[in-house]
Design a binder for these strands. Structure first.
Lengths: 412, 412
DNA sequence: CTGAAAGCGCTTACAG
DNA sequence: CTGAAAGCGCTTACAG
């Protein structure tokens, strides 16, 4: 392997000079430059980035943790993230937990060992806040609360839930079934609990503890239920398997169509909605006349299903932009020596942690805005979270979803 | 940042002893071990992997190049690859060309600079063989020929083409349309050429030069055409956009259903097939009675489309296993100092390059097997490729596809 | 503008 | 079994 030393020798200069030429730093005379350059070409010199990494104590690599890259939602998000990170000069290490049958430990360890400059965390985890805050390295969470001081970028699931409710109310749905992820993931914080109604079916408990979760999607279901409740529309929540279990959705759909024959609307992720359309077509059910279907996510699958799905579309590009921005901020803060959580115990958060919940878009609502009146104090307020209310001290960007009307719902 | 030095000082031992304890190498007395361990815990010591990487000149990171992770085919492949690489102790850097709007250069550069230990190449490229062979670092190609000595793992597209033909012949299809990628990608080697038939439609030229391509999927179309030709079934090839352009497939499908009203079978990737089913349902075309649809790939999309698609399923796990195996071999060969292509010019290949085309499964056919009689010397033989026949000197694993009958084809 | 030196944090022969 | 030394290949102050 040819190194700087060889180039220096060949060009008859010192190693430092070669380094300056390679990096374009400092002042080097044109003649020196030319000599060094030609020596580099002659020897086919390629800098070894590992040495540079060691000196800089950086790799320009960000880890992106998702459950599985096969899922269209995470595939789309990861693609957007990759573009954004690339534009900021970072490469992406794909960290999927389900695909490799691993928890996040291995990836967090790489972060600790400086193999990655930061982690964007978009997978489910049961680790307590102290686990996350003790890492002391750049960490940004997507759509979940990990701990005080750890920035969050989230979709506006409350707005999403309200939009779905609006579509259903306008079209006079009378019996709605939601098909979603496993109930356990809704209540993974210490003091939480859920009330099981019947096998495979669960009605979310209404109350503050429902929001003690690292899985904010629950907010969408809760909002939707709340809205349907207000006008007396019947609804059930059916568990599909975990997010990665595509078959789970197929089974859940069959269960619904087999046993809930008066259902006139199904709400699920793109995958659940796609299966639902397929099965309805197979059974000769007329969509949207006898059954409406609403997809939550709006990936390409919403376009490639049996019918163009009416969908609540996530704004992947905006989410990725914000995640990237927060990550850069966090890395830069770390380089300036700002406390990024420090090792050991729960920190009181980062310096930028100013207690402000920021809105990403004009249309978005604060993730934890305590002032909105959607009825009955159902929404989270300061102090309602496991962490003793410090959630509000966490920087939170909230990204609105957009309604895209397709062929699977009736006109208002 | 606390380093080994601090631990050594705290434990009252030398740095080397700490290193030995951390890595479990050599002999250290239990007492020393205990002292060092407790010092590590007290100080919350975490080894800096960057220093280790520099010394080992390795990162245990593999780059996986695909056009876009959003496409279900590449998402599924990447997930399998990630699992396999993880099991071998490697992490995955996601390198998508379309998602970041970049060619492969940046990633190849990282490989050269030792930021990655190897690259698995599964995206389109127009670089000549000399570009690839001059990299001189571990490189394995998926489903494409990059240059002499660069191992290839490929799907058995000839077998796939024959299977599709068989389904169509049994079900008495009379007019088949294939919807596939842009013709240019079929002929990206220097001396190749394609014959354009009409706007948006192309009939692949039959001849040896058709196989002068880094895009082996062409073999599947060519085989299918050959088989249909033999029995006088009419067929056309319609170009959709590039692989990443999902809308391109939707347009192509509409074009076919608008202007080819006697078409009774469509063959395309999962995405093209899914759109086709959707559009057929919209138009009230009876599938499979009046139109059969066959999907090539068999990702989860084949299950989530408007009907369960009859599909030629790729064996993602087997492909990933083989890619991983070849990559490990290549890395180990490189560490032993075996010539891995060396820098500068076209090498004559790696040492393991024994001229043998290996079969991955009992059912698979050699990718370039010259001896099979499928009629008229249409298939590639030694010497037929741009590289002067050296393809045969390249290790090639061929993975068979499996037919999965769904609801979109008639019984035989 | 250029070179000698120290150092990034670890590993591995090599003496003891 | 343990320690002092050299080195992985580069960068950056710091003298000249």
């Amino acid at each position: 392997m040819v190194g700087m030393r060889d180039v220096a020798r060949a060009a008859g200069v010192s190693i430092s000079t070669v380094s300056l030429v390679v990096n374009g730093n400092g002042y080097v005379s044109d003649e020196m430059k030319a000599r060094v350059r030609s020596a580099m070409e002659d020897l086919n010199y390629i800098p070894n980035e590992l040495a540079r990494n060691l000196y800089r104590n950086r790799t320009d690599i960000i880890g992106v943790i998702v459950p599985t890259i096969r899922h269209p939602f995470f595939a789309t998000l990861t693609a957007s993230l990759q573009r954004v990170l690339y534009e900021h000069g970072f490469r992406t290490i794909l960290c999927s937990t389900v695909d490799v049958n691993q928890d996040v430990d291995q990836y967090v360890d790489m972060l600790r060992r400086h193999m990655m400059d930061g982690i964007i965390m978009g997978a489910h985890t049961t680790y307590p806040a102290s686990y996350w805050t003790s890492i002391g390295r750049p960490l940004v969470a997507f759509d979940r609360y990990l701990g005080p001081g750890i920035p969050v970028v989230a979709s506006d699931h409350e707005g999403g839930g309200r939009s779905v409710a609006e579509i259903l109310l306008k079209s006079k749905a009378r019996h709605v079934v939601m098909i979603g992820g496993p109930r356990e993931q809704f209540h993974d914080m210490p003091q939480s609990g859920g009330k099981r109604r019947a096998k495979g079916e669960v009605r979310l408990r209404r109350g503050r503890n429902d929001l003690d979760t690292t899985f904010p999607t629950v907010r969408y279901y809760l909002t939707l239920e709340h809205e349907l409740d207000r006008v007396g529309v019947r609804y059930e929540y059916i568990e599909a398997g975990a997010v990665e279990s595509l078959e789970g959705y197929a089974r859940a759909v069959n269960h619904v169509l087999d046993f809930y024959d008066d259902v006139d609307a199904v709400v699920s992720s793109d995958i659940g909605a796609a299966y639902c359309v397929q099965e309805a077509i197979r059974r000769g059910i007329d969509i949207p006349r006898d059954l409406q279907v609403i997809a939550y996510d709006g990936t390409y699958l919403a376009d490639a299903a049996g019918m163009r799905l009416t969908a609540l579309q996530q704004d992947f590009d905006r989410i990725a932009d914000l995640l990237g921005k927060r990550m850069i901020e966090s890395i830069e803060a770390g380089e300036k020596g700002v406390d990024v959580g420090k090792t050991g115990g729960v920190s009181t958060g980062r310096r930028e942690d100013d207690g402000i919940v920021r809105d990403a878009g004009g249309a978005g609502d604060g993730l934890a805005s305590p002032s909105r009146d959607t009825g009955s104090g159902f929404y989270p307020t300061a102090g309602s979270l496991a962490d003793g209310g410090r959630f509000l001290r966490t920087v939170a960007d909230v990204v609105p979803l957009h309604v895209r009307i397709g062929e699977t719902t009736k006109a208002g």
